[in-house]
């Protein structure tokens, strides 16, 4: 347990603008979302979340890469390789179902994390911001569904 913070604790927070989910937010709205974010560092090979975990948060990649894996029997199948700017674990925002796949860092990476309950609270306190994010999320899921239908990626069920 790190009681006195991390070495990057005093650095400026990474801008959220580069993350697609928040790209439609205005300058006035951005600080509200910034206040909700958590920032985490993962080393290459570290598990971000496991298949079967309770989904409590959505992740966005600030730097590095994350692969999405599914274990089918004894076989491990890579569903997607995600880079900076992309989000994963997004279904945690919509329901409380267990994670459908494992997320693992393939390179050292920095992730910003948003807790589902904070988003639910945002729906009540800042419905305009929440609806913008929900619209981006719907577009994002639609894109993934189209890709999955085209057979390019199979990660539309995170």
């Amino acid at each position: 347990m790190r009681l006195f913070g991390r070495h990057d604790a005093h650095e400026a927070p990474h801008p959220l603008r580069q993350i697609k989910l928040f790209s439609t937010l205005s300058r006035r709205e951005m600080p509200v979302v910034q206040a909700l974010r958590h920032e985490r560092s993962y080393l290459a090979g570290e598990v971000v979340f496991d298949e079967g975990d309770d989904g409590e948060a959505i992740y966005a990649i600030v730097s590095g890469e994350v692969e999405i894996l599914r274990h089918d029997g004894g076989r491990q199948q890579r569903l997607a390789l995600l880079a900076a700017g992309e989000v994963f674990g997004e279904l945690a925002l919509l329901d409380q179902a267990p994670r459908a796949a494992q997320a693992r860092a393939t390179a050292d990476c920095v992730l910003v994390v948003f807790f589902r309950a904070d988003f639910m609270n945002l729906l009540e306190t800042h419905p305009k911001i929440a609806s913008k994010i929900a619209l981006s999320l719907a577009r994002h899921l639609g894109g993934r569904l189209r890709q999955a239908n085209a057979g390019q990626r199979q990660d539309g069920h995170l």
């Binding site: 006195f4 913070g5 958590h38 985490r40 993962y42 971000v48 948060a57 994390v113």
Partner: peptide, 25 residues
């Protein structure tokens, strides 16, 4: 309050992070 919550969450290892967020919530 939120800053303190983030400070507490930062002190927790990655493996326990989501559970800790849930606990704080």
């Amino acid at each position: 309050g939120r800053r303190f919550q983030r400070f507490l969450a930062r002190a927790v290892p990655n493996a326990y992070f989501e559970r800790t967020l849930h606990l704080l919530y």
